[in-house]
Design a protein around this nucleic acid. Sequence first.
DNA 1: CTAGATGTTAAGGT
DNA 2: CACCTTAACATCTA
Length: 259
Amino acid sequence: MPELPDVEIFRRSFEATSLRSRIEEVKVLDASLIRGDSKALRQTVRGQTFRRGRRHGKFLFGELSGGGAVRFHFGMTGFLRCFREAKDAPPHARVVFQFRNRRQLAFDCQRKFGHIGLVPDIEDFLAEKKLGPDALAIDLDTFRQAVSEKERPLKAALMDQSRLAGVGNVYADEILFQARAHPEAVAAHGSASRLRKLYHAMHKVLEEAIAAQADPRRMPAQWLLPHRGEAACPRCKGAMKRKKIGGRTTWFCENCQKR
DNA sequence: CTAGATGTTAAGGT
DNA sequence: CACCTTAACATCTA
């Protein structure tokens, strides 16, 4: 489920396994995942090292020793896996970085909605993509502006990557649940204090999710995430409601989440 | 067999 | 033109 917390976990494991060893080869097993020229990516990256990992919203960047970076987006099913023996390669590896120290880093993507590309400059890339501030870096005032500028359901506002980068469908539901806010409430009509509550819920959810390794089984039982798809509200035990909002399946509790 | 699944984006409609 | 909604993308599972 690659939303901000998942990608942050990928970043940390990338930094723990894939820095400072010369990249000997980039195996492109499925070129359709490469944005831009696949050959240019291989040739540019070969012989360099990754200097560090950086995340913005749902994007991960592997900064290259010679400048620029490799960008990763995980779509709905993408993840990274470090391995040594071929038998340990993940089942849908699409691109594999092979390092001098014999480690290999696979980009696995079952549904192929993810992609990888070369970016000469990260800031330019973010501007070009029109990505908003990262959800963990945004300040309260900017958040208020971002979320309440337009007349639209809170759920849609939280997921708008051009105003707030990193929150996706599942975490938007969790944030709204914990802020006890209705997903169809319109932020532009709400009070400043409700927006502050939403902002703090967002921070708490994202940070605690990262602390739980983005693994729902490690998250508190009173959260929505470990119970997504279940009939009963983890808080009041009432009936959970399922509805398409902003084109995405939304789970919420009408008793706990008021407009 | 059909519907739906964490994301993004192009296309169509208002 | 701005805005919103839907379909499409590729693949697997319930």
